[in-house]
Every structure is written in C-alpha cells, then in structure tokens.
Amino acid sequence: MAAINTTEATARVPSGRMRRQRVEDLVFRSTTRAFAVGVLSLLGAVLVALAIGAGPAVRAFGFGFLASQAWNPVKDVFGALPAVYGTLVTSLVAMILAVPVALGIAVFLTELCPPMMRRPIGILIELLAAIPSIIYGIWGLFVLAPVLQVTVQPFLIATLGAVPGLGLLFAGPPLGLGILTAGFILAVMILPFIAAVTRDVFMTVPAMLRESAYGVGATTSEVVRDIVLPYTRVGIVGGAMLGLGRALGETMAVTFVIGNAHRIQASLLAPGTTISATLANEFTEAVGDLYTSSLIELGLILFVITFVVLAAAKLMLMRIEERAAK
C-alpha cells in the first residue's frame, strides 16, 4: 500500500522536502522490517547451525541414536534415550505437581482474593519466575534435597512404595537427589507461568456468564467448574503447555539436583539425567568430534521438542485471544 503511495507521489513531482521525507519514511520502514526478518531468521539459523554441528553424530549413529541407551565417551558410543527419557519424566512430574496448584492460584486470584490484594499477591507469585534457574539449583541442592531425603521420600517409600505396580516408581533408597526432586524444583519454576496465563484466561470469561450463574444460585466452586473451566479450557491447556515448554529446557536447576546418571530407572527416586543437564555437565569437557557432535544433536532434539510444544501452546492461546477480542 505504502509502496503505491510512493510512486504516486513521485508522479506528481512533490517538493524536495516532501520527496526527502518519503525516502526517509521508506528507509525507516525497511529498517524495522529488516530487523523483523532478522529475528525471524534467527530461529532458522539456530536450527541450521545445530543440524550442521550434529552432522557427524547423525552419520555415525543414524536414528539408532534416539533409541540407544549407550553413553560411553571412552568407546565413542552415544545414545539419546536416557537423556530424552529424563527430560520427559521430570517435566511430566513437574506438570502433575504444578498444574493443580497453578489452577488453585488462578481461582484464588480471580474469585476469592479481595481486589485490593490481587495485584500484590499476583506480583509475588510472578517474582517466583524472576528468580534465576541457578538460584533454584543451589537452593534445591543445599536446602530442598536434604529435607526431601528425610521427610517426603521415606514417607513415599513407606506408603506408595508398598503398593504393587505403583511401588516401582518409589523403590530404592531416599537419596534426596534424583528425578523426583528435579520434578519438584521444575514444578516451582513453571508454577508462576502457568498461574499467570490461567489467571489471564479466567479474566476473559464474560462477566455476564459468571453473573448469570451466580444469579441462578451457583456457588463459587460451581461457577468455576461449570462456567469458567469449560469456557477457558483451551487457554488452560495452552498455559500448561507453555509451562511444559519451559520445564523441558530448564537447565541449571535440574543439573544441580538430578544426580546425573546416564541410566533409565523406573524409580522416581533414582538419579537420572536430562538433555540440558547432560549438556551443562559435559559439553565443555567433551573430547573428540563425535562426543561434541552427539551433545549438539541432543541440543537439536531438545530444541525441536520444545519448539513443537511451545508452538502448540501458542496456537491454543491465540484461539482464546481471538475469542476474547470478539
């Protein structure tokens, strides 16, 4: 549109100053556009750079890389399965712990909290997201893990550990460090993201719907269950996926508490590893091209997984935004 204006203006032979301003406008617009394209291509550049770096590992191991449990720097044999498994399981544990609590916080902030306290409490919860990953790591290692080791973990072993089947998840000694502790820390870290999105989508419920429900005598919990939750379902799933995307790629906190073992064990109390923790621990010490390349391929796998999860989250949240805009 603007381009047509420019040619029209030249045709009418405007004054010199006018013409200069048109050129300046064009330059400014093109500059902002160029940077926007730059941000766009950043994503592609990351993918390409990682794919090139992963090349040697892809050629050496092929698709077997994804299914192999081997991790032997001495023999130069590597497989992604333990790290991928650890990444998925810790994130799953985090989601199971964080989503209900985040829903509770959102219900509290939108339905129960006195309006004056909404902002301060909301900000405090959001500050949880501001604390850097490394602080969660050092706190998890020195404060949380020893407490879990003597309280929660023995309790879980004594109760759930005795249940047939389910007991496999809670077998073994209470080490303090391991998949469960990592999942717990991750849950705290993604809690503010899920809670903030959930609160925001709760706010998009039209007041009319809410008030009608109260008008026919529904209690607050009934309004939440029968009006708010059905109306915002897509948004909540989107918020949870956003949290999942964060959990999958979280590095430092997990590196401190996961125990760093390249093994797949059924027990959640056992040490494990994640893609990000493996990278943080081993990348700078990796000797040999194949070792480095395998680590970069792990990074590529992580990037692709998080990309898919975050893109799905974004699409879901866009749907609810569109509806709110109507």
Partner: peptide, 26 residues
C-alpha cells in the same frame, strides 16, 4: 510477515537458553 515474526518471537521468548548457548558456540 508480522504474525509470523510475532509467533517466532514468542517461541524464542521461551526457547531453552542452553540451546542458544550451543548456537553461539557453533
């Protein structure tokens, strides 16, 4: 272009920072 840039930007916002480190390493 704008919706695509917005979409990609939101993904970069949550992308794992360790992968950014790997990218710059490369």
């Amino acid at each position: 272009l704008a919706p695509v840039v917005r979409f990609v930007n939101d993904i970069l916002l949550s992308a794992p920072s360790i992968v950014i480190g790997l990218f710059v390493y490369q």
